[in-house]
Nucleic acid binder design. Structure first.
Lengths: 144, 144
DNA sequence: ACATATTAGTTGTTTTTGTAACTAACAAGC
DNA sequence: GCTTGTTAGTTACAAAAACAACTAATATGT
């Protein structure tokens, strides 16, 4: 405990990241949780399908960097909520294309709009330059 | 899906924050998990005691913004690992002062040093200005 | 053609978390 | 002094995440 001078926890980047991420997550989950009873993974799967078009569960795993079990369960949940349907591909029956239903598309449009609003509100407090640096640094740390 | 133009998921700050935090967490957990078999909350509790001195579980809850049940379990786990002891206060027997043992202090010194190294390595890729902006933005978002 | 390996996806089991209900100790009002 | 309220901390139970083992379909090597 001698040479380890004064290293405050608020100087520790992983801690700052965790706290900031947690705060943002808790605030935004209001929208998909209370309004649609969705879990975070469900919201992400919905977003991917809505934004990037129909794809298989595997595609979502790769793009969203989610584990296949998480996606599998999120897909089932979204299906139970009638937000998507599955279509088995003929040439390879292991693949199922996931398609948003009318209701799924509506939920996506709503939540996506809220997300944009939320994002704007978050960056509001910063200058354009700061927001740009923040995004760039985060993208780099996240190895996206 | 019409007016909701092109809002990429990588433009969504909560997503970026979650991915960056996850990445940092996974990388750093190597130290406390593989070396000491600790969970993240245990590492945080250990850090607080090592850095800010003996205190009660309640103090840690407040400082670290952790729920009391999480802290309670982390304290038990650290006690089982012989990293801390509890001392009931005489004037108020509800309070227990948590004290790191010799082994606990050693683990703290080690992990704290690793944390500093890790933090430096993380910010290495950025300019001083960028790192400063990043920390300031995160601190603000985390409402610390 | 057939054994072996891969791939997409699901299911089951174990950890970890979150939430609520609980105990024990103290404080305050009257 | 005794009811009521508050605080520190634990425990029990439910929700969610992590991990491993599994099925079914296809691909590959010989």
């Amino acid at each position: 405990m001698s040479e380890t001078t004064d290293f405050d926890i608020k100087d520790f980047l992983p801690y700052l990241l965790a706290q900031a991420a947690e705060q943002a997550s808790v605030e935004f989950q209001h929208f998909y949780k209370t309004k649609y009873g969705m879990l975070r993974t469900e919201w992400r799967v919905l977003f991917h399908l809505g934004r990037y078009g129909d794809m298989t569960a595997k595609d979502i795993c790769d793009r969203a960097r989610l584990h296949k079990t998480k996606v599998s369960r999120a897909v089932s949940a979204l299906q139970n909520k009638r937000f998507l349907t599955r279509e088995q591909q003929e040439k390879d029956r292991r693949h199922e294309t996931l398609c948003l239903t009318r209701a799924g598309l509506r939920a996506y449009a709503d939540l996506s709009a809220e997300a944009q609003k939320f994002d704007r509100k978050m960056t509001d407090g910063f200058t354009a330059k700061e927001a740009e640096v923040l995004r760039r640094c985060l993208t780099r740390i996240a190895v996206l």
